[in-house]
Amino acid sequence: MSTWRTVIAIVAKDVASELRSKETLSTLLIFALLIMVVFNFAFELRVENVRQIAPGVLWVAFTFSGILSLNRSFVVEREEGCIEGLRLTPVDRGAIYLGKFVGNTLFMLAAEVCILPLFAVLFDVSVLNPTLWLIVVLGTVGFAAVGTLFAAMTVNTRAREAMLPLLLFPITVPVLIAATKATGQILDGQPFAEISAWLRLLVAFDAIFTVIAWLGFEYVLEE
């Protein structure tokens, strides 16, 4: 099987099982909504203008809920021994990584598409901006690229779910800063030239870490 067909097969498998159970997406959505509501309560009492903290809240909601999705993607593989099955298939390990990575990105994006309108309502901002969508996609890709690699490791440890955020958040600090800054600049209505430095940074992070995670995955999966 060619690499691309393997990738598509793995993504299709994940999407099909998700469409049947709807477990990941529903927990993701509720959790992200909960984060935005909690932050609204926590800050409304002190901050003059809640719109100022809107970009930060949005990205905290995206990344915290993303952790759930990433953990879930390998926990289900492990539960039924599916990961052993994947390991035994005569395909390139890199293709397995790409399949899981694309699947994770899709789940996170699907949840984010639902969160954005709620965000617009709760913080009274406009999210009808293609540049904002681009930032959301780039940030999510960067987060999922490293997250998929780390989730494959942490699922094999005693603490399982608890270890993933500890490792993932320090590494994705650049993504969080760049995405939050760029989102803020868009919501303030600044010109594209101001935002392009952050966009370039996001693209560079995505490119570097997709390649590194793709190379590293081979060593993580071998037994």
Binding site: M153, P174, L201, A204, F209, I212, Y219
Partner: peptide, 14 residues
Amino acid sequence: AVLSIVGFVNVPIV
């Protein structure tokens, strides 16, 4: 080994 590589590559980016 994988983690120490990923961590160090991230230094200049951060």
